[in-house]
Amino acid sequence: MNTANVTTARAAYRSNAVATASPARLLVMLVERLVLDIERGHSAQLSGSWEDAHRNLLHAQDIVVELESSLRVDQMPGGRELASVYEYLRNRLVLANVRRQPSVTAEALLLARQICDTWREAAMAAAVS
């Protein structure tokens, strides 16, 4: 199989996975991508690849903005608190990016991983119910 066919197959698989995913799975996929972007941004910062770090951290910020905008704080217990966590994470990502501080990126990564784990657990619990 040539490279073009593999790339096309991967794109089709990803597209199908997103199109058929439940809302809970979509949320988990989104926060998993958030973690990946921050990991990549952190790695790029550590190697001095500031353009790559900026691109990945900017995409992570976009994901957090999407999470914030889709959150219905009045329709879920702890909604306001979660909104505050998202806001804090977004602010840390901005600071890490603007000041080029890997230590702040590492802090954001830790928080993003915790958010991801929490949403995974919630999605699994909802699937079992």
Rank of each mutant, 00 (worst) to 15 (best):
I38M: 07
D52Q: 13
S43F: 05
L58W: 06
V98R: 13
I115S: 05
Y13D: 11
L67I: 01
Q114R: 11
A125P: 02
R113W: 00
T7R: 15
E51S: 11
A24N: 13
E107D: 15
G48R: 04
D74Q: 08
M29P: 00
P77T: 14
A122V: 11
L110V: 02
Q61R: 14
T118L: 12
P77W: 10
S84L: 09
T118V: 07
E81A: 11
R113E: 04
L27Y: 07
H59G: 03
R92Y: 01
D74H: 10
R100M: 09
A126P: 06
R25G: 03
E51W: 02
P23E: 04
G41F: 07
E107G: 08
A4P: 03
D62I: 03
S47N: 07
A108W: 05
P102W: 01
V73W: 01
R99T: 11
N16E: 15
A60I: 01
M29S: 00
I63Q: 01
Y86C: 04
V64H: 02
S43A: 11
A96R: 01
T8W: 14
V128Y: 06
R99K: 14
M76W: 06
Y88D: 11
L46N: 10
L82D: 08
V85N: 02
A125N: 09
P23G: 07
N91S: 13
M29T: 00
A96P: 03
Q101A: 13
V94S: 10
R14D: 15
A83P: 00
W119H: 05
N16M: 15
V98T: 11
I115W: 05
D74W: 05
T20W: 10
N5Y: 15
E81P: 00
L109Y: 01
A122F: 10
L93E: 00
P102G: 05
A60F: 01
A127E: 14
W50I: 06
I115K: 04
R80T: 09
D37F: 06
D52A: 10
T105N: 04
L58A: 12
V94R: 07
A53K: 03
M76Q: 09
V28Q: 03
L34Y: 00
M124A: 13
L46K: 11
R113I: 02
A123E: 08
A11L: 15
R55M: 06
A123Y: 06
D117L: 11
S22H: 09
Q61D: 05
S22D: 09
A17Q: 15
S22V: 04
W50Q: 08
Q61H: 12
Q101C: 07
L46F: 01
S22M: 08
D117Y: 11
H54T: 12
P23W: 08
L82P: 09
T7F: 14
D62K: 07
A12S: 15
R113Q: 11
V28C: 07
L71F: 06
W50K: 06
T105W: 00
A96F: 05
Y86P: 04
R40L: 06
V64N: 03
T105C: 13
T8H: 15
G78I: 10
S15P: 02
E66T: 09
S69D: 13
V31S: 02
V18G: 05
D62T: 11
N97D: 13
R80L: 08
H59K: 12
R55V: 04
S43V: 05
L82K: 08
N56S: 13
